[in-house]
Every structure is written in structure tokens, then in C-alpha cells.
């Protein structure tokens, strides 16, 4: 592993430089600082969060199909930002998206605890159902507001080209900082999370408050996912495939897996966004690129690891 660090670092640095400087024109330093750097930061945050959260969800729910969107957070957040758009509150789209995520989070959490005890099947099922419900609401809005279809597609297919207002940018910097801190906290929890894979009883006997741990991870992860959807829409596949790829390469669940997953997810999303921006004359929604590239790449890694 150690002898690979230098090439990997070189790759990351050159990727970032290409991202910022591709098609560089004279006097476009302004564009690099004002448009591309914010976009790079957004791409980094979204990839970092979705892949890390995906990894922790797959372990916590003990389900290889789990991903950040599985608890309906994405549909709730998407619904929120679409409502903001339909009502004409263009500047408040991230705020509404975040509110949508919070509402979904509360509903799903409440449903998962019906009957007084938590179980992960109930959590998954209520997440999926609530997600479907918000999905139907989105379709309804789409049907009755055809003039807003462009934006709705934008949210549903993922878009890292969010145009920030200057004020909003400062909020984003704060959000960015908080998100990174929350992710670091999630990394700290990963040791306990690993013990959870041995089963609730053993974990409990090792002194872990299983209930409290689950609640913490659930709330942090959902908030983080809500933030990404609020700014970038729904970007599929990253949160599902990156954790699997990391696991296949590193051989099973590891405590450090979540960190690798986050970093790899960030790199992959930046790469996908670079392609989305430049491959065609018109920018392509990045969610399409992540799926188009992600699926074959995933199958290749899977075939190789068998």
C-alpha cells in the first residue's frame, strides 16, 4: 500500500488541477476562484459524504443494498427544494431541501420505533415507503407545473453546477465546515460500528450502547445526506457502489473502510463531474455520468475480486 501513496496523491493533485484549469483562458482566474473552486468543493463534499454515509449504513443496517438515499431522505429533500422552486423561492431551495430532509428523518425515525423498539427491517421499510410517498408528491408537482420541469429534472438527476448567491456562499462555507466535522465524528464512531457487525448482544456485552449508537449514526448520516441533496440534487450510485468497491479492494469490512470510502467517493465524483462538464458541448447531469461509469466499473471490480 505504502508504495502506492505517491502515485495516488499525484493523481488526486492532477485531477484537481485539471478540474480547475481545463480550458483556461487569459483573465479567467476570476472564474476559477468564483465558479470552479466552489463547484469543486461541492463535488468533494457530496462525494465524501455520500460514500462515507453509504459505508456506515451498509454496516449499521447489515444490508449490502443500503445506501444514503434508502431511508427516503433524498425524496424528502428533493421534494423540499422542488416546492421552493415551484413557489418561486429560488434563493431558498437548499433551505427547503434541508427542511424536507429533516421532516422525512423525523417521520421515518418515528415509524421505525412504533411498538416501542427499533428494528432495522422496520427502519428500511418505512424509509422506502416514505421515500415512495414523497416520490409521488414530486410526480404530482411535476405534472401540474410543467414550466418547472427543467428544475425538477435537475434535482432528480443531480447537478453540481449550483449557482450560489454571494450570501448563500458564506452559508455554504459554514455548512461545509460543519459537514466535515460531522464526518470526522462518524469516522470516530467507526470502531464501535465495527463491533456492531458482531451482533447487538455481543456489542452490548462489550459495553456499547447499541441503541444510542444507531440513533447517532442515523441522525448524523441523514442530516449530511439532506445537505447534499439540498445543494446538488440526487446523485445516485456513488453511495452504493463506492463502499462495495472499497470493501472488495481492501477485503471485507474494515474500521478504516469508511475513511477510504469517503476519500474515494470524493475523487470519483470529482472525476465524474469533470467528464459531465466537458465531454459534450452541453453539460450533462452528473447523476447520469456516475451511473454510466459506476456500473461497469463496479462489475469489473466485482469480476476481478471473485
Amino acid at each position: 500500500m505504502k508504495n502506492k501513496i505517491i502515485p495516488i496523491l499525484l493523481f488526486i493533485v492532477s485531477l484537481i488541477l485539471i478540474y480547475l484549469y481545463l480550458n483556461y483562458q487569459a483573465e479567467s482566474l476570476h472564474i476559477i476562484l468564483q465558479i470552479r473552486l466552489p463547484r469543486l468543493m461541492l463535488a468533494f463534499l457530496v462525494g465524501f459524504v455520500l460514500s462515507g454515509v453509504g459505508y456506515s449504513f451498509q454496516i449499521m443496517l447489515n444490508n449490502p443494498l443500503a445506501e444514503p438515499y434508502i431511508l427516503g431522505i433524498s425524496s424528502g429533500a428533493a421534494f423540499g427544494s422542488i416546492v421552493a422552486n415551484v413557489m418561486g423561492f429560488y434563493l431558498f431551495m437548499p433551505l427547503f431541501g434541508f427542511a424536507g430532509a429533516l421532516i422525512t428523518l423525523t417521520i421515518v425515525w418515528f415509524l421505525a420505533h412504533l411498538g416501542g423498539f427499533f428494528n432495522s427491517t422496520k427502519l428500511l421499510l418505512s424509509g422506502i415507503i416514505v421515500g415512495m410517498f414523497f416520490g409521488a408528491l414530486i410526480s404530482l408537482l411535476m405534472y401540474f407545473n410543467q414550466q418547472d420541469i427543467g428544475n425538477i429534472i435537475n434535482v432528480l438527476m443531480g447537478n453540481l453546477g449550483h449557482i450560489f448567491s454571494r450570501k448563500e456562499w458564506y452559508y455554504f462555507l459554514v455548512v461545509f465546515g460543519i459537514s466535515i466535522l460531522l464526518m470526522l465524528y462518524l469516522f470516530l464512531l467507526s470502531r464501535q460500528l465495527m463491533i456492531l457487525t458482531t451482533g447487538d448482544v455481543i456489542a452490548g456485552s462489550l459495553g456499547i450502547d447499541v441503541k444510542k449508537l444507531r440513533r447517532k449514526i442515523f441522525i448524523i448520516s441523514s442530516l449530511l445526506t439532506g445537505i447534499t441533496v439540498a445543494y446538488a440534487g440526487i446523485i445516485g450510485f456513488i453511495g452504493l457502489i463506492v463502499p462495495h468497491i472499497v470493501r472488495m479492494v481492501s477485503g471485507g469490512n474494515k474500521q478504516t473502510g469508511i475513511i477510504y470510502s469517503s476519500i474515494f467517493g470524493a475523487i470519483l465524483l470529482i472525476l465524474c463531474d469533470l467528464i459531465a462538464m466537458h465531454i459534450a458541448v452541453i453539460e450533462i447531469p452528473v447523476g447520469i455520468i456516475t451511473a454510466l461509469l459506476g456500473c461497469p466499473f463496479f462489475l469489473f471490480i466485482m469480476a476481478k475480486s471473485i
Partner: peptide
């Protein structure tokens, strides 16, 4: 709403 866009100034 156009004037306050980041970088558009």
C-alpha cells in the same frame, strides 16, 4: 437575483 450570483459581479 442575477446581481447577487457569486462571480457574476
Amino acid at each position: 437575483s442575477i446581481k447577487i450570483r457569486k462571480g457574476w459581479e
